[in-house]
Nucleic acid binder design. Sequence first.
DNA 1: AGAACAATTCGTCAATATTT
DNA 2: AAATATTGACGAATTGTTCT
Length: 233
Amino acid sequence: MSKCGRKKYMRTNVRHMTMETVESQQDRSVTHSVAEHSSAHMQTGQISVPTLAQVATIAETDDSAESEVIDSHKRREILSRRPSYRKILNELSSDVPGIPKIEEEKSEEEGTPPNIATMAVPTSIYQTSTGQYTATGDMPTYQIRAPTTALPQGVVMAASPGSLHSPQQLAEEATRKRELRLMKNREAAKECRRRKKEYVKCLESRVAVLEVQNKKLIEELETLKDICSPKTD
DNA sequence: AGAACAATTCGTCAATATTT
DNA sequence: AAATATTGACGAATTGTTCT
């Protein structure tokens, strides 16, 4: 995959705002907006996280003189980075029994085979008669492998920086560090995407469960209405 | 069949959060 | 404070779908 010619963007204090909306778009040949871009990447049926588009809209419409007066706290609140998927999911799981926690990555010696991510699709959260959510065997009892622990072949740990002298050695060290960083980030991105998918699936499951619950309650309400005020015809 | 477009995936960068 | 982790955004590549 060729990565040459990649455009570098200055990023301002914007977690949910890209330069697409911050910069003037005049000199950009790309015509799609942030919202379009994110929706284009949204799979059918997935739940979109609206903050990005919302914030982008705010940013776009905010450049009037009045906007300068806007409380910076508010803005910061909007733009602040939201918690990680792991955190969100774990909070969800503490609220709702049956939603699995995303476990911290564990070292391989704790029994988990390396590089194996077992994960079931969380398609079945059921509600018990007490109103609690319960997981079936299909619930994601995944285990997260520890990707960063395994260095690819060819990545050699160099000597300590103190022992490097020549510019060539320094350059090699820099290259090695960069490759290591890229590799780590590559794995981190994969893991992040996996967590995100998990998070979205989890939300979808919740929606499904709540819809069923809502339907039941409506039916119950109708029944009670009928009992309390039977029709006279 | 193949062109055209849409959707998806992946690696990377950079900003920010979290951990040490 | 430095190191590390997380994740939105981007562009390129790949894959899928539709139309001619």
